[in-house]
Design a protein around this nucleic acid. Structure first.
Lengths: 155, 155
DNA sequence: ACAATAAAGTACAACGATGAACAAAAAGCA
DNA sequence: TGCTTTTTGTTCATCGTTGTACTTTATTGT
């Protein structure tokens, strides 16, 4: 078979995904820069946002939502607690789990950071039609479901 | 102003981008697993693919394409050279630059790895219509251009 | 031609993420 | 009840990435 004909770049799905990956990489770098003013990084923002939405979540649940290991949370959370952004309180029913809460300061930082992120996204995607964005969202959520399903199947 | 009304998740572009980012994260993890058989990781694949397409590229140019620092290349490339995947030869015109080439073994590994990646992507995006993929590709390439332009402007 | 500036690559220290081994607590089960 | 298994969180060693300082080579300007 001819090599040229089978080059991955000729496959629409492949090309499309490579573009998605590069865009993500760039957006992440840009977000990192934008968040520097608040002295936090994207992983911190991920945590803050989840505490903002799901107050009292456990470290385990948080790690699962963020698709990272538990040890990652064990490294990041104490340092965020020292910075007074979050608070960890033991669950009385189950003494193993630590439940996580935003402090007042943490809530302020979260809102500021979300504003920065929202602004960055709105600015960068300004030229994309809303319908296209919504179609992409639907598409991506389906892909996420597929990948999560594959993950569970591998256990 | 009402907090509920201004939550970022209500913005279509924001929701859409969060989905993109999560999908990327999952795809990356899945790719890492799939490449384990070949004993390489996504960064190595990125390098190999670029050498496959652009033989004789310099470390600097490669770093630029991959959106990483030069020092990153200085760490990864010697180790790939020891594994006989690539070769580094000094440019005769300019003694500062090292030009990069795939070895026969490197070419074989690259083709095997690209097959794995293509298969993963085709499988995961199987349910997405081709037109949607192409629209997403166009969209993402526009976004990449925007972000790259912002990067240069910040210098 | 020569000093100053820029560019390519390297070395290194600091930071983040990961997975495995571990301790404490809860749940399941005989 | 008492023993085993599971779950939650931590610790630690390892690895990858980053930014900075540094060396060597080209280029620029006078």
């Amino acid at each position: 078979m001819n090599k040229k004909q089978s080059l991955p770049w000729d496959h629409p799905r492949f090309r499309s995904w490579i573009a998605v990956a590069r865009a993500c990489q760039l957006m992440q770098q840009s977000l990192t820069r934008s968040l520097a003013d608040l002295d936090i990084k994207p992983p911190h923002l991920d945590i803050l946002v989840n505490l903002y939405r799901f107050e009292g979540i456990s470290q385990q649940e948080l790690a699962r939502k963020l698709l990272v290991g538990r040890s990652n949370m064990s490294m990041l959370l104490p340092q965020m607690e020292k910075r007074q952004l979050i608070e960890r309180r033991g669950d009385e029913r189950d003494k193993r789990v630590l439940r996580l809460y935003l402090t007042g300061e943490g809530r302020k930082v979260t809102e500021a950071a979300m504003a920065i992120q929202t602004d960055l996204i709105e600015r960068t995607l300004a030229d994309e039609p809303i319908e296209q964005c919504m179609a992409t969202a639907t598409s991506m959520e389906r892909i996420i479901a597929t990948l999560l399903k594959d993950l569970r199947d591998d256990d």
